[in-house]
Amino acid sequence: MRCARCIKNAVYSDPALCKKHFVVSIEETVENTIKKYELIKKRDHIVVAVSGGKDSITLLYILNKLKQKLSFTLTALAIDEGIVGYRDKTLVTVTNFCKQYDIALQIVSYKDSFGKSLDQFLTTTHKNTKPCTLCGAFRRTLLNKYARIYSASKLATGHNLDDESQAILMNLLRGTPQASARLGPQTGVIEDNMFIPRIKPLYFIPEKQIAAYSFMVGFNIEYGECPYAVQAYRGIVGELLNGYEQKHRGAKKNMINLFLKNKKRLMKLSMEQEEKVNYCSRCKEPSATAVCKTCLLLENKQNL
């Protein structure tokens, strides 16, 4: 198979491109997504949520490359949940990466913010809470809070086309399609000073292409797995979609596009059901409910 842009051998099949042109094409897609959806404007300060996995490292790397051309500034924000044997290692990766590329990095821990590491919560007060429920709520709270504290105009995350198509399908299968109104290349529908809008510059890039990009650029990262990660519903839906994609090329992308066409209608649907942003009466962070999920979890009042 030849590269579609030169005479070299393709190292990737769909699209058929050589190494050099594959790398260029990924970066072009990210730039085009940013422009088409106006994800980043001049003088924006972008805080990038970085976990040390291939998605967030790729995102950080590409944004760092684009920052001069599109004139914005960048800070990386890593969350230290306190997961021994896993997060300690990925934080070393993140720290070295940011040093190498001269990117400002802030690390915020559960221990400093909530008094205990995730490991400690799960072995003492929260033995019966699902790890990802606790962890996910805490992370969402801290990302928004610290993005705001570090003066972000946007918070960028490494969500890719697979993440998004999985989320859309899961919402459909659960019978809550209106929940997808919160998806899309930019979220934060609600205008609120306390709430930092989120952007997903890797929105149109399939996970496989991000893995290939990471390999070709040579980030040289050990991608471990969180010991609490379970083969959740999302994994099953992911496999289902990949199985379907194998037979019908473009299935995932078609889903995304169908969703984007209908997003406005979904937003209307969900706005009729949702109240606007309130502030949590305990921590004062934005929340749809009177007390936010993080505070409920901290008080052990919500064991999902």
Partner: peptide, 28 residues
């Protein structure tokens, strides 16, 4: 990856090749 370089799906493999199948999905 064949001999540590990614290859396209129609790439012909030889019996002497050292092939790696890398997982795309990462967790956490």
């Amino acid at each position: 990856a064949v001999n540590n370089e990614l290859v396209a799906n129609d790439c012909k493999l030889k019996n002497s090749d050292s092939v790696k199948i890398l997982a795309v999905v990462s967790g956490g």
